[in-house]
Design a binder for these strands. Sequence first.
RNA 1: CGGGGAAUGGCGCAGUUUGGCAGCGCGCCUGCUUUGGGAGCAGGAGGCCGGGGGUUCAAAUCCCCCUUCCCCGACCA
Length: 470
Amino acid sequence: MAKQPVLTPQAEDFPRWYQDVVAKAEMADNGPVRGTMVIRPYGYAIWEQMQAEVDRRIKAAGAKNAYFPLFIPEQYLTREAEHVEGFSPELAVVTVAGGKELDEPVVVRPTSETVIGEFMAKWVQSYRDLPLLLNQWANVVRWELRPRVFLRTSEFLWQEGHTAHVSEDDGRRYAERILHEVYASFMRDVLAIPVVVGRKTAKERFAGATNTMTCEAMMGDGKALQMGTSHELGQNFARAFDIQYLDAEGAQQLAWTTSWGVSTRMVGGLIMCHGDDAGLRVPPALAPVQVVVLAVRDDDAVVDRCRSIADELAAAGLRVELDVRVETSMGRRATDWELKGVPVRLELGPRDLAENVVTLVRRVGGGKEPVSLDGVAATVAAALDDAQAALLVEATERRDARTAEVSTIDEAAEAAQAGWARLPWATLGVEGEAKLAEQGVTVRCLVMPDGSLPPGDHAEGALAVVARAY
RNA sequence: CGGGGAAUGGCGCAGUUUGGCAGCGCGCCUGCUUUGGGAGCAGGAGGCCGGGGGUUCAAAUCCCCCUUCCCCGACCA
């Protein structure tokens, strides 16, 4: 029973560790076309949990789901100058279809501001039609130069919200509401990832936006990952697609639009934020499998009791999986569930059964303890709560410990080799931002000292959070 | 696109220098023994050595051309 590591240790090679987890936890495979991925059932179950939680929050914020086409006329993209400039290099374009050269090529959507803008223009006539709050769950294609499973794939799954408002102020409030109430709260409360919510610099802004806001998370190696964004688009797309309404005074006005999204990238962020050398650790609030009940030995009484325990847990509302594959060794099965990051395991063997206990094993924090079979559902629920809280604490402590407060650009570059750095944006400036970029360090976002969003690109007192990023 | 690598059973690799029966580990199948932290033994299946041309009695190995993938940079949810 020689013990050798199942995964490349994080400290040895973090990217390799990440690839190992994706493979061994059966999250995804590379697709046949460069940059594409096959999301396997376990990875997809995690995505479905994310979808369900985010969708609920989006609807609570008043937006309604719709669906717009995959194919977009090429000329739509060209209507907004910055937008086309930003996306042209990564477009997949269909020039032949039905065996014929197309008169006008169609692009596979990289994002849907344009086609949705076109229809907003049709649907919005009066100020009474606003705000128009839409969301869609879809796949998009961006021909990225360096793909990475979940983090940057040629095709990815996401939701994209698109809204139109009567005023700049109304649009801004909604974009900020989505950022805080949908994204940041979901990431904190469900993913157990403490994100920094901030404003992107002009350099990092979405192509066509007047303001881009972001949720930034720190990964296990100290690098940053953008987990979600929300954009104020000003009147740029309203102008390009003629989204006009008649106001209460009978005057034609241009609407103000926003867009916002989170993607399958969050799955990669989840892995890299919470994973350890034994594999993934999934926060219970998200976990497709919260607790797995394992029969330790091939014994009818044990297997039967495992079934009844699983039924009891399911009846208590827990997401439970039964593992009675007694032909496979116990060690192998324990390792597999550990790799998949299931928060709690209940291992039942003849010895436990004789004493009316079951062995509870915690994925977060470790530890095994016999617990009574009486009231086991409540015991498990408490352990899940512990795990949820512990993951958030751990991630928060790491982020804070590895974020340095610095006062010069050189210090920022130095600190960013191992984590994040914060310094006054007035000290860094656009020139400093360019200088850091040469060393692979970017400004992740700007925040006010009290954590609030800076009101402008050069808001008085704003701090820049800088880091290396995925 | 610039700079580095690599392509050999499902996965990871050796073999190429010096041409001579296509191998190893893991995984998979069968059987027995096992099962409380990736079990052991025995037997077995599975490969036009990325593609095309050439040299040679003989090519995974040498030569020419092509393709694809990976890593570092520029782009990015």
